[in-house]
Amino acid sequence: MNATVDDNDAGVRNAAFVDVRGVSKWFGDLQVLNRVDVDVSEHNVVCLIGASGSGKSTLLRCLNMLEQVQEGEIIVDGQLLTHGKVDVNAVRKKIGIVFQAYNLFPHMTVLENVTLAPRKARGIDRQEAESRARLLLRRIGLEAKADEFPDRLSGGQQQRVAIVRALAMEPKLMLLDEITSALDPQLVSEVLQLVRELAESGMTMIVATHEMGFAREVADKVCFLDAGRILEEGPPEQILSEPREPRTREFLSRVLEAEKLA
């Protein structure tokens, strides 16, 4: 058996850009992912929904190799990530991830946050990196904040900078891990708008989210995770309006309840 999968091989097996097969993961005795299968075609958006602790974040972190899986395999862009020698840094250069807590670098300006990885990980010279970064910042209307430090920005602005920081590496896949969950309600829409634009531009994305309306709007497919398993998946209209599984219905009604209260 070959530990690596060449392009040809992957092409025969599956045309999906992201292919997660039978992935399981444990933290100690606790199983956080249970035989998870997901595939994502290029230029598609897949939304992961489910309660906190259902495994959405862990799955995204495994895709970015921030966590290791113990069983199963993950293939991204024809490359097997889960076995043998993998150049972690090379993989991460084409997979961007944005976290719930933004995680901007507080000791660097916005511009430095955005240009660091292109300069140091991709070897782009400073001038080039900065002009590209300014272009991206202009796109999100934050060019004027380029020389500010993150603590001078609102949460929504910080999260948009975090997205741009990931985009600056020109990734082929973006992973968004509940990126609006830490934001005040009035700041959510500016972040979602940016994600919407990304989806329209054809970016392949896997999005863990609690925003059901957003999932319905941008997702090509919605996966409902429950206790580490994908209980149900399908087009957003079906999953969100006519879920087959009682657990999914229960989850959705609780979310709707919460939204009404908010």
Binding site: L66, N89, A90, R92, N103, F105, A117, A121, A166, M169
Partner: peptide, 16 residues
């Protein structure tokens, strides 16, 4: 740890 994770997730090496 999230600072390190953010840096590594961008493709920076451990030392970077």
């Amino acid at each position: 740890a999230s600072q390190r994770a953010a840096a590594r997730s961008l493709g920076l090496s451990y030392w970077q």
